[in-house]
Write a protein that binds this DNA or RNA. Structure first.
Length: 875
RNA sequence: GCGAGCGUGGCGAAACCGGUAGACGCAGCGGACUUAAAAUCCGUUCGCCGCAAGGCGGUGCGGGUUCAACUCCCGCCGCUCGCACCA
């Protein structure tokens, strides 16, 4: 008996697959009616080398891709590189390497590593977003979007990262700090290129409902991000204001003595209004602050609080009376005070609210703190209006309106409609829909990105680059000796002539946010080598949407929302025929690979391979000194809790890595990489090979009739094998890879247990081994091919199709029914599957183990759940 | 603070629709083979009582619904993730 040698076997089969071209997607014509399956993992950023933690995502996608192909689908399973981005520039600055060289070197290294994993990828479609052959088309689409009105420029307050010298999206600001640099973000005004995501706000929200193969969690997060709400704008006239406040020269709202514009979702509670509150950075607050040191101090205090939600959350609700009085829209004699308050956000709605304390907890806390009077206006169902009162808990749900003049007696819903009607009649307000979603600022003041194809002409203004001049290629001879954008400093690149008037002009030096690159790559894969267009419309329409997308939860909002926007924009600009506009029909968000962390006695992080267990304690290999074992965390270079993929594959093989990352935990949950777990996977590989080798060829072909006398243990093995086919098929369909793995172990245990060389045993073993080989093929493709060959089959298990369970064998002929008395298990009986209820009942009542418990009383009821359980109720 | 999710042996977990709780793996224990070790194989492993047959208890805690609850409902406790005091 020889050991299974992955070092020979794995490269052999990879070469054979490549030679056979079996992983190439077929054209729609070649596919001839086969259904299509587009399986995609979120493409990697080429950061350097990959470790085993990265492999889980690709392995999951690969299992699905191989499974679909075996089931007769025309599968597209491509791979590419999200290759623009800041780390390349950082490497350039730190080590004096060119971003391009650094990126392409990393791509070459990572490509080889991914190939070692034996992924069933159509490498003929490989793309890199930093390649002019890719971003050329992105520039063309940018121009098309521009023409369509989906791109515009706007002077905007932006988050400026002073370290990276770039603009950050709101989404890229974490706790007031840049998400990459960690530096506190500053505010600057810049002319920015914008994508009009809000044009699709409603559609992006509505269609979420139909994405029923997305995790609810992700849909909820996107829905919250879009943040649609229905409400009203209300204009409050100034009744009195400090003398220093000038009258407005502009007539714009929210300035000086113009009416104050407020947004509310609850106009029904207007008669419960107690005060107005403005954001600390509301223009009116600032105007007052210019004259009142106490207000200025309050504004400064709020600004120092930071933008972190946790900070604001823990902060006490505070405000200051601005000395302005406004008139209630429904009663000119009713005056309300105007305050500035730290819980009002300038970035949402109009930056001003009216406080209705009985119906809003924050307003109530605020009113209580400053002694502002209020009364309840919404009566909860069943409450008595004579005695109902609100003291320190607001009532925020629907009810009946009272204390509210013409709104009295209406429901919350009707009162909202009625109040808006009245506001419109009085010219004091209007219905409005508010979104939290804002347009996407795509300008980045960076070198290593896709140049924005625009030209600034002194006479013609901003002019698009003509299509014939694309791509606008990045110059390669740049220097990183100063902070900021090297494109600005380049001696010649930005100087050009205007395509309109031929006059002197300069190129746009902003490049596109890298989220743009990843917003359409899935479409490029459908026609990756097309030199003339982003993709052929027919090909993209054939393959899209992606049938199964696999990636991390961290992309729940940004990447997935931008891709949904982009697909709609591509559709509306005529690039795509895709009615729904949805790029990803089904989404799976996978858990990470985690590992213990190790610290040396001197406090340095240690690689797992630099430590060992000695006398039950972990020590440093080099010094023998004890190691501090830290938290189990996501594998990361910085904490050194990584296992190198190449070394692991050399030691154990790709199949062991693939098997292990899917085996122990449900795919959506994190899995801990442990030496013990790896050993288990390794043993399994050896065990399967030993069984296959011992059996050898030939194994029974599909459908081959068994020898006579098939019964007993051999028959039982056949039953289990066919049941396993069913179970494992269902488990893969349902993304329960860990369950599929467990079923494989079960089957192997059973095969090993059936001894003897009677024809029936040989047949049963051979058949079970053939089925097992096919079932493990998506998980451990190299081992499966070697087994397939050993069992006498050719050419590939990968092209052999998916096994079918014989229904007669897969179905159990008899079942063991537990018998309960009053819900407690007292015995069991073996009956034919589907046995008649009366028969089962009689057997159960006659069961000797049950008898003593029946004596305790009278049998009141016997519940028979066919093929599951019998419960006898005795009382 | 709000929203979502989770909580099962020594550990990772399974139980898909309310129907035998703990499949499968890891670790442990006992044994076989071996001069020995590794590898492999066999047995065993939720707790308590019992020689055994068997019994009792058990899925974070407290209630409830049901013939039957890890699963459904109500209220707590703990952990994780997300966030926007969103008017």
């Amino acid at each position: 008996m020889s050991r299974y040698n992955h070092r020979e076997v794995e490269p052999k089969w990879r070469a054979a697959w490549d030679a056979g071209g079996i992983h190439r997607a077929l054209s729609p014509d070649q596919a001839k009616g086969k259904p299509k399956a587009y399986v995609l993992e979120m493409f990697p950023y080429p950061s350097g080398r990959i470790h085993v933690g990265h492999s889980r995502n690709y392995t999951m996608g690969d299992v699905i891709a191989r499974f679909r192909r075996a089931n007769g689908y025309n599968v597209l399973h491509p791979m590419g590189w999200d290759a623009f981005g800041l780390p390349a520039e950082n490497a350039a600055m730190e080590r004096g390497i060119h971003p391009k060289g650094w990126t392409y070197d990393n791509i070459a290294a990572m490509r080889e590593q991914l190939k070692l994993l034996g992924l069933a990828i159509d490498w003929s479609r490989e793309i890199a977003t930093c390649d002019a052959s890719y971003y050329k088309h992105q520039q063309a689409m940018f121009l098309a979007f521009w023409k369509k009105g989906l791109v515009y420029r706007r002077k905007q307050k932006v988050n400026w990262d002073p370290v990276d010298m770039t603009v950050l999206a709101n989404e890229q600001v974490v706790d007031g700090k840049g998400w990459r640099s960690g530096a506190p973000v500053e505010t600057r005004e810049l002319e920015q290129w914008m994508f009009k995501v809000t044009a699709y706000g409603d559609d992006l929200l509505e269609e979420l409902q139909r994405l029923d193969k997305w995790p609810d969690k992700v849909r909820l997060m996107q829905s919250n991000w879009i943040g649609k709400s229905q409400g009203a704008k209300i204009w409050w006239d100034i009744a009195s204001a400090p003398d220093f406040l000038p009258s407005s020269p502009t007539g714009q709202p929210n300035h000086a003595r113009d009416p104050i514009e407020v947004y509310t979702t609850r106009p029904d509670t207007l008669f419960g209004a107690s005060f107005l509150a403005l954001a600390p950075d509301h223009p009116l607050t600032k105007a007052i602050a210019a004259h009142r040191p106490d207000v200025a101090a309050f504004v400064a205090e709020c600004a120092a609080l930071g933008t972190s939600e946790a900070d604001i959350e823990k902060a006490e609700k505070k405000g200051i009376d601005l000395g302005i009085r406004v008139k209630h829209p429904f009663d000119p004699n009713w005056e309300l005070p105007v305050w500035a308050a730290n819980f009002v956000l300038s970035t949402y709605g109009t930056g001003a609210i009216f406080g209705s304390p009985a119906g809003d907890q924050r307003d109530l806390d605020f009113a209580n703190k400053y002694g502002l009077p209020f009364k309840p206006v919404v009566l909860p169902p069943g409450a008595d209006p004579a005695t109902y009162a609100v003291t320190d808990t607001a009532y925020t749900d629907d009810g009946t309106i009272y204390n509210s003049r013409f709104l009295d007696g209406l429901s919350t819903k009707d009162a909202i409609t009625r109040a808006i009607e009245e506001l419109v009649k009085l010219g004091a307000g209007e219905a409005t829909t508010q979104y939290r979603l804002r347009d996407w600022g795509v300008s980045r003041q960076r070198y290593w990105g896709c140049p924005i194809p625009a030209i600034h002409c002194e006479t013609c203004g901003v002019v698009p680059v003509p299509a014939k001049d694309l791509p606008v290629a990045l110059p390669e001879d740049v220097k990183f000796d100063k902070p900021g954008n090297p494109l600005e400093h380049h001696p010649t690149w930005k100087h050009t002539t205007c395509p309109n008037c031929n006059g002197k002009a300069t190129r746009e030096t902003d490049t596109l946010d890298t989220f743009v690159d990843s917003s359409w790559y899935f479409a490029r894969f459908t026609d990756a080598q097309n030199p003339d267009a982003p993709f052929d419309k027919k090909l993209a329409s054939y393959w899209l949407p992606v049938d199964q997308y696999v990636g991390g939860i961290e992309h729940a909002v940004l990447h997935l929302l931008y891709s949904r926007f982009f697909t709609r924009a591509m559709r509306d600009c005529g690039f795509l025929d895709l009615p729904s506009g949805e790029p990803f029909a089904s989404l799976f968000t996978q858990g990470m690979v985690v590992h213990e962390t190790y610290k040396s006695a001197t406090g340095q992080w240690l690689l797992p391979e630099d430590t060992e267990i000695k006398d039950g304690a972990r020590v440093e290999l080099r010094t023998g000194r004890p190691v501090e074992v830290g938290a189990i965390e996501k594998m990361s270079k910085s904490k050194k809790n990584v296992v190198d993929l190449d070394a692991f594959i050399t030691d154990f093989g790709a199949d062991v890595a693939r098997w292990f990352v899917l085996s122990d935990s449900p795919p959506e949950r994190d899995v801990e990489w442990t030496a013990g777990g790896v050993e288990g996977a390794w043993r399994f590989v050896q065990r399967v090979w030993a069984l296959v080798e011992a059996h050898g060829a030939p194994a029974p072909k599909p459908g081959e009739a068994p020898p006579p006398g098939m019964e007993g243990e051999a028959h039982a093995l056949r039953q289990l094998a066919h049941r396993s086919v069913k179970h494992i098929t269902d488990a893969i369909e349902g993304f329960r890879f860990n369950s599929a793995v467990a079923r494989c172990y079960e089957l192997v245990n059973a095969i090993a247990k059936l001894k003897g060389d009677a024809p029936t045993a040989v047949f049963a073993r051979g058949e079970a081994l053939r089925l097992l080989t096919q079932l493990i093929a998506p998980f451990m493709p190299h081992l499966a091919e070697e087994c397939w060959e050993k069992l006498g089959f050719a050419p590939f298990v990968a092209t052999a199709g998916w096994p079918e369970a014989d229904p007669a064998l897969a179905a159990l002929s008899s079942v063991t029914l537990p018998i309960q008395v009053n819900g407690k298990r007292r015995g069991e009986i073996e009956v034919a599957k589907g046995a008649a209820e009366g028969e089962v009942k009689a057997l159960a009542l006659a069961h000797p183990g049950v008898a003593p418990f029946l004596a305790a009383g009278e049998v009141r009821k016997v519940i028979v759940v066919p093929d599951r359980i019998v419960n006898i109720v005795v009382g």
